[in-house]
Design a protein around this nucleic acid. Sequence first.
RNA 1: GCCUGCUUGGUGGAAUUUGGUAGACACAAGGGACUUAAAAUCCCUCGACUUAACAGUCGUUCCGGUUCGAGUCCGGAAGCGGGCACCA
Length: 862
Amino acid sequence: MDRYNFKKTESKWQRKWHEKELFKSELNLSKPKYYVLEMFPYPSGRIHMGHVRNYTMGDVVARFMKASGYNILHPMGWDAFGMPAENAAMENNVHPGDWTYENIKDMRNQLKPLGLSIDWTREIATCDPSYYGHQQSMFIDMLNKGLAYRKNATVNWDPVDKTVLANEQVENGLGWRSGAVVERKELTQWFFKISNYSKDLLNSLDNMPNWPEKVRLMQKNWIGKSTGLEIDFKLKNHPKGYDKLKVYTTRHDTLFGMSFAAISVDHPLTNILSKEDVNLAQFVDKSKKTATNEEAIEKAEKIGYKTNILVMNPFDEKKLFPLFVANFVLMDYGTGAIFGCPAHDQRDLDFAIKYNLDIIPVVCPSDTNVEDFKIENEAFIGPGKLINSDFINGLSIQDAKKVISQKLNGMGVGIEKTNYRLRDWGISRQRYWGCPIPVIHCNKCGIVAEKKENLPIELPKDVTFDLPGNPLNRHKEWLNTKCPNCGEDSKRETDTMDTFVDSSWYFTRFTSPKSQNPTEKEAVDYWMNVDQYIGGVEHAILHLLYSRFFCRAMFETGHVPKKVVEPFSSLFTQGMVCHETYKDDTGKWLTPNEVKEVKKVHKKRSLFSIETGKSIKVGPSVKMSKSKKNVIDPEDIIEQFGADTARWFMMSDSPPERDVEWTNSGVEAAWKHLQKVWRISYMIYKEGNNSEQDKFKITLTDNNFDNDLLRSVHNAIKNVTYCLNSFSFNKAIAYLYELTNSISNSKASSGAKKYAIKILASLMQPITPHLSQEIWSLYESSSFLYEEKWPDFIEEFLSNNEIIYPIQINGKKRSEITISKNMSNIELEKKVLELDSVKKFLKGLSPKKIIIVTGKIINVVI
RNA sequence: GCCUGCUUGGUGGAAUUUGGUAGACACAAGGGACUUAAAAUCCCUCGACUUAACAGUCGUUCCGGUUCGAGUCCGGAAGCGGGCACCA
């Protein structure tokens, strides 16, 4: 018998599928559609195991839904703009475009041997002018609708390289190349008005049952709706024309616990004051030497600068509080100013202790005496009754808020406001390798959109990366242009778009990838929405939220129908692929290929370096990454074991939403199992004569071996179908193991086994398409299993007439009983009490209670 | 720091729906069959402790609660991971 030759078989079927254009999607209004999409990859040049896992999952879904009768769209593209290409350009003196397209070619070649059912005719790359030109056109539409605008924002500024840094390029507050202390710098930048949709983006989350709860929760918190009060505080010693300070608070009930106020270092008042106050200016400079990300700001020591300005309590203008400029007050949230109530806010408390400010408790927990209630190092944020608070004493927090709000409102200094944490989306990047923002700066007309007939504004090819900063700023020919409005000399915008813009609409472009417009009505109406979107949980907030916003903008500018405002009907977030880490005696990381394991002795593993022969320390299993060298190259695995083995292993064992650990033994087990499936398939094929399969009737007979096999087969169909529908690929595989073992141990007739093995091949097809097709073709030489219908299970074959009940005594399993299905509960109780194993515990007494959960369990309470 | 999730044998995990037999299915390990031998394959054992055996006690990160019954529900703690707006 032939050993299963995966190399020959896999390439044979891939070739045939390609020749038949099996995976090409056609719009067909008479058929229900199903759009499967995995998050498209960044073309780094090498696929990794995370890709294998992601794309196999999508492929399993696509093939399963195809068999279930849907018209499938399953495309692939490249998220091709971004920083790595520019870094490569700087390091290796290659053009980012050449580098990117070379990588795309390599990755496509690595992806294809996986045998994915992808329609490659729809492939797109976001760095292609035929893609980003449409993005520019939609930007202009958004500009005209007021959804794109300019305002000042802070960036990470490297004062040595004189360039803007991404957050990931800031390491411990220092620029990654120069090592200089990074500063915050203000630039005028382009923004999308996502804040227009805060409410809608939040509320719609409640109508998305097929998104993971945790993703929706994270987005809710990110959008961060709060209801509070905007209070105008009167100031004393204020600069001219600045007699009021607007503060937003959600805790106006604690107003009488106030002991200071603070404004952001970026607050307009700070700017005014620091012109007169050298020390304040220094403080501001010092505070701005932090990266722009929230984590750095939050973790930095909370410091403040006391100004001469005093803030008045609106109810008692004799009560005056110092105004600080503080580094932890964010200009982007609320009004950029707070009032501090140290007793009931941890940050305020830390600040008050540091600057020796009053700490007045104003909310007392109801189970504590006012005299005993003390605030020490921990602020009290729980519920309680108001104390030390004049006319609101004794009220609940809720009621106190109401009273304060009404009073201040009546005085004309307070207004209730709903606030969102969500900020407008800053899309400007001072970089070359991104989609150019299609506007022109004219001295006469100001900001003017490029004419649509001039799109795409292509990136100039002849650029160099030998100087810091954006090469577009140095490219005179590209930079200088005529104003589309008045024809005068003017300059192009040199900012390019955030790559999240590229990935915010690619899924709509797949529906008509070659259209002369961003989308094509008929195609986008038919194919959208994405029925199943699959990708990493690290995209839970930004990518997914931006896409939801962008689709709303596309709807308002007429590019998609209304339903597309929520483009992803179901979302699945998959876990990462992990591997052990290895370090040698010098602390250097080693790749799994550089390590050899000698046979275990008494469960102790010993590993040594192939190169030096010295022993190796095994570290924890973490996400595969180049830096820790714990990577397995999918190409090697496919070469050694074939795509089906890689696919099978990736889907087995770990549930898809969790991390999976790559182990050699796991892959080998997968490989052995697929060999076994082939072996028994081939043996069964050779058994008896092949017209015997026609003689086998799918019905219960007096052949009990056949009946048992039939039961196994139909249970497997039921379970595998259920598992594939619910993304439980690991469980589906467990059931496939079970069915394989049943067939292999069965003494059924050869006709029954032939029937069983064909079902097995069908059920395995989504996961191991090549092997399954090869088995299928033993019997059905001319048909593609991909196009065959999914098998249905037949209820009457699922079980026999007996049922086994476990019996508990006081909730502990002590015995079991086998009875016929239709026995009454009264009869059952009697039988149970007659059992020796039950009598033993009863000791002649009668039980207090017998609980029978039909079909599940019996509990005897003594 | 803030938001969010996860934790079950030596290992990955299973226990669907509304709380109902903890350890399915695999891996590793140990033993055996076949073989001159090896590879491959097949069979058996496999949470811990007690016991000659029957059987029993404990056991789902930890502490506490609800229940006839808790891996599952509630309250608290610890450990590990993801995100934090310019990585993609």
